[in-house]
Amino acid sequence: MNVHTASATSTSENTPSVPALEVAGVSHSFGANKVLDNVSLSVPRGAMVVLLGLNGAGKSTLFALITRLYDNVSGAIRILGEDVRRKPTVALQRLGVVFQSRTLDTDLTLAQNLTYHAALHGLSGREARARAQRALDIVGLGEKAKTTVRTLSGGQSRRVEIARSLLHRPGLLLLDEATVGLDIGSRESVLKIVRNLAATEGLGVLWATHLIDEVAPTDLVVVLHKGRILYTGGVPGLLAQTKAESLSDAFRILTGTASGSKAKAEAAS
């Protein structure tokens, strides 16, 4: 199989040279179980990169390393040029994250949830409240600031988590399986907000998913399978490389799940 290892390149000519995220040669093991093997990828600023992989591919582990929940012992991870291990404070100041699990306090209001998160980035008082309101406006929930999270739908909660991740004005946004459990309308709404943020605000977005239908033709794609990167680049390049007619076929061919494990791949799409 021809494994494409070149970095994903930006679709915009105006993108600055320092990428929002650079992962270079990162491997990680839990005991004897190697979950990431020499992973390299790049997320340009203002671009949406879809990290595509089946469950267990290593996406969440990669996210845990980028967010420094645990340290990478090999390779390097840089957020806007700042090494996560050497300069964690500066790097994490530029990072916004939406985790796979729901992480809002359901008993608190939207505003309380957001101002708590603002405090975790050293913001307080009027500035924190103003930023929270602006972020909620962006995701279309400005009028619900004083309602409790418990009253929100799953899609609305996700939008609050996106608003929360924007409070400290990050340059890179990570979303780990952000649409899991959402209906089709909510999924489209969340995707639209995130694509818009990348296009209009210059935010670099790494969107991890196992749902192939979330990939747009203009997105950059990274295929992660069993801890290894199998492809990085545009959608047309992936179709050309695999000689497939659809993205789901291309994914199956690339990951070797075309036969035998077909049901598994279908579940992924």
Binding site: A119, L120, L123, R169
Partner: peptide, 27 residues
């Protein structure tokens, strides 16, 4: 305010630490 800041983030000073501490305790 912008959603994305191009400027280098400011150093976390005592006020930022206090804001963080208060935020966690208050929560």
């Amino acid at each position: 305010p912008p959603i994305v800041d191009d400027v280098q983030p400011s150093k976390l000073g005592p006020r930022a630490y206090l804001a963080c501490f208060n935020g966690i305790v208050w929560r």
